[in-house]
């Protein structure tokens, strides 16, 4: 029997384009082939390779929740050749998607616990998938707290959802912008993410912390969480190294004994401490 071509992407129609922040867009993608939509499933935390035909593939997380069926969403910044080509796509255009790849955030293991999400800048998308996944099964979890920061008000992504979360009684949200990044009518917090977390002093007992952001935010947030009593197996993050295959073959994302595309992208702090810092 002929073998399957593992590099063949699904064809996806860009169903909706949302401008999130300067050079940052969210695409809602629907399967061109309805059968693919029926057979497709993924877990929160997984990623894919998105192709702009003619330019190449780029790796991003799936930013939507697996509880929302029939489509996936991705949020990306136009930085390189492929992301610029993707950013030029309009509603109705066709792109490619390979995935889902990688491991997952083990939310089934987190049932009955408090969840603390800490995100910075364009690192909210992977956590947004988890947050919606948990909100869509709200009874399964205790307190849900989100601390999200960006350089400026303009750089915040999912502003429309942040407003929604702000109004919900079942989620505590603190949104902050770096000093100088606020506008005259800004009602949120001003300050870097780590001191805001420190002010909130979330309790670590029976709590899982999910942290994703730029290296400087991670660097200052992790020691803080440890001071608050979070143990390294209760702190999760997700890595994103450069990838080509997503299948554990091309060698690019290899970090220590781990292939981020297969053994990651989700790691606990305890697992990260076992790896060389080549990410």
């Amino acid at each position: 029997m002929a073998e399957k071509n593992i590099y063949l992407p699904y064809l996806m129609r860009v169903a909706k384009v949302t401008d999130e922040a300067p050079a940052v867009k969210t695409f809602r993608l629907e399967f061109v082939n309805p059968e693919d939509a029926d057979n497709f499933d993924f877990n929160t935390g997984q990623f894919g390779l998105y192709s702009a035909f003619g330019e190449g593939e780029s790796t991003f997380c799936i930013a939507s929740s697996p509880t929302r069926k029939g489509y996936i969403e991705c949020t990306f910044r136009a930085v390189g050749r492929v992301t610029h080509a993707l950013a030029a796509k309009e509603e109705g255009d066709i792109i490619g998607f390979r995935g889902p790849y990688g491991n997952l955030f083990p939310i089934e293991e987190w049932r009955g616990k408090n969840l603390l999400f800490v995100a910075g800048g364009i690192a909210l998308p992977p956590l947004r998938s988890v947050i919606w996944n948990c909100l869509d099964q709200r009874d399964g979890f205790r307190d849900i707290t989100v601390v999200y920061g960006a350089r400026s008000v303009a750089d915040l992504v999912y502003k429309y959802e942040l407003r929604d979360w702000q109004e919900r009684a079942d989620i505590d949200l603190a949104v902050t912008v770096d000093p100088g990044g606020e506008t005259h009518d800004w009602k949120g917090k001003v300050g870097f993410v780590p001191p805001i977390v420190e002010q909130l002093a979330p309790r670590s007992e029976n709590t899982i912390a999910i942290v994703c952001g730029p290296p400087i935010m991670i660097k200052h947030t992790l020691p803080l969480l440890e001071t608050l009593g979070f143990t390294s197996d209760c702190i999760y993050t997700t890595l994103e190294n450069r990838m080509k295959c997503g299948l554990g073959k091309c060698g690019r994302c290899n970090t220590g004994r781990s292939f981020i595309c297969k053994d990651g992208p989700v790691y606990t702090l305890a697992q990260l401490q076992e790896l060389p810092a080549e990410y």
């Binding site: 590099y7 003619g54 073959k249 091309c250 060698g251």
Partner: peptide
């Protein structure tokens, strides 16, 4: 050695 790249060769 098996590490590889994936590249595109295309016109419009």
């Amino acid at each position: 050695c098996v590490c590889f790249d994936i590249q595109e060769e295309a016109d419009t």
